[in-house]
Structure formats: C-alpha cells, structure tokens
Amino acid sequence: MRRGPGLAALDRTRAARAQFKKKGEEVAETKAQVMKAQMAHFKASLEEFALKHKADIRRNPEFRAQFHAMCATAGVDPLASNKGTWNKLLGLGDFYYELGVQIVEGCITTRQFTGGLIELSRVHEYVQRRRGSRADPVSEDDLLRAIEKLGGLGSGFGVVRIGAKRFVRSVPTELSTDSNALIELAERQGGYFSLRDALASTKWQEARLRDALGAMAREGLMLIDDMPGAAPAEASTPLAAGGASPVSAAQAVPRLYWVPAVGIVPSVHKYRQDTGLDSVPLPPMSDVTSYVPALGGEMAAAAPGQARGEEMAAELVAAMGHTSLNSRQ
C-alpha cells in the first residue's frame, strides 16, 4: 500500500535540497577562486607584458592600438586611473592628456573657419605637426581615445561619422541629416560645390536645399564664394535671411559653397587643379599650426607673438570639467 507524502518524506527532500545548495555554493566558491586566481595570473601576465613592451607601446601607435584592444577584451582600462599600476607602468595617462590638450588646441585654432567641425585627419595632421618630427608618432586611434576622454567631461567634444569620414566636433550642435548630406557632398567633391552640383546630387527641391544651406551658413559650417564677375546683386543676397539665390537666375559664374571642415589646404589644392590655376605659384603659406593673433579673442587675451595656446588649451580642458583627464575611476 502506497502512502502519500508524509512528514518524513518532506524532511528528506528538504535535507537533500540543503545539501545540494551547500554543494553548489562550494562549487561556485571553488570556481570563483580558480577564476580569481586565473584573473590575477592573467593580470600579472598582462602587466608583465606591458612592462616588457613598454617601449613599443609608447613608441609604436599600431602596437599601442593592439594593446588597447587586448586590454579591452580582458576588461582592463589602462587609462582608468592616474594612480593605478597601469599608469605607473606605462605613463599612458599623461600621454593621452597631452594629446587631448593638443587636440583641443587644434580644434580651437581652426574653429574660426570651420564652425567647430573638422575632419579627423586634419586634426591628426595638426597634432603631428604640433608635436614635431622628433616626437613619437600618434595614430588616429590614439586621437579617438583622447577625444573619448574629452567627451567624458561633457564639453561637447566628440567624433561624428559623416559619409566615409570621421569628424571631430568641438561645439555642441546637432547636425541635421540635410547638413550631413551636404558635408558629405563637399567631402566627395573635395571641399566645395555649386548649387547645381548640390541639386543634382541630392535631388531635393530647391527650397529644401536653400534652407539647408542657410542653416549651415548660420552654424558657420559653410562659407559662400562669388567669383569675380558674379552679378553684384547676387553677391549681396543675404544668405542668412533668404538662403541661396535661385538657380533659375542664369549666371555665367556660379556661386560656390565651401565646407571648411573638409580641410582648407586640400580644398584649395583641389580647386586650383579643377580650375587650371595650379600653374600659378601659390604665395608662401604659413603652417597649419601657426597661431593667428587676430583671433586671439577666442583664446583669451593672448599677447601677439605669444608662442601658442598650450596653457590656454590646458585651462580650457580643465574648465570643461573639474576633473583632469585621468581621474575617472
């Protein structure tokens, strides 16, 4: 005769469950300990590796990028702390801090033309020139890391992808999709386009294009250019108020729209090639890193002739948040 579940059976089940639980905890404990030991071992190995290849990490940007990838997989952030083992080992915090300052400086120096948007490769060029040929090279990957640290300060610094290229943004504006499309067009065309080019490329209604161009001009992201011989009436069309002049007004010389974020120097070379002016010698031009005293306004009251705004850039970085670049922990 089968008896139904009794108290004894219940007790038995409970005891079994408790034993399972205990066993389970034991197993988990052992596993955790093994894992811990493995992690410690791995971390030690990674540190050993970092120490061994310190010179390579510091000197070789490709190696550095791979090292960062490896650290990310292991869940270790070598930039997380200025006081931690990692920084003591590698001094990378200072490296990225310095880089961050140089990036800010590059963005500020070019901001008077670019409206706060500049192609990453231009910033890269600026930073390389600024550091000089004797400094260890930096890669775009390094720049992205440094910018990421700057972005953490909530200053509006960040990287945006437009078309195939990455741009560094140093003013906290949101770009509309229409602006993006026109920046992309400028990028493809080498820095500038005519209204006709834009209409053909975007297939937009003229009114929409006019609005988009006006918005970009107001943001300082686009500059207009009337070649000599353009009708004076057109030259004075207030773009900010009314946008671009109608295409229908047949012009011998079309107005050109330039997007300086693409980079002034390459745009000028492209234009000279396109117009057959490249046989005319270009007057000697200053280096991209040369400081423009007239625009000292944005870099506080720098006396003309003062070398460059590194200190000011550092102050700016400091002002963006009350943290240094490395103190995120």
């Binding site: 033309f113 330039w258 002034i264 120097v265 000028v268 234009y271 000697p284 200053s286 040369s290």
Partner: peptide
C-alpha cells in the same frame, strides 16, 4: 612674406 592660410581660401 608668409601668408596666413586663409589668404588662399576663396570664400
């Protein structure tokens, strides 16, 4: 004389 970059920028 060394010109600033903007001198060669059409706009």
């Amino acid at each position: 004389f060394v010109f600033p970059i903007f001198y060669n920028f059409p706009p």
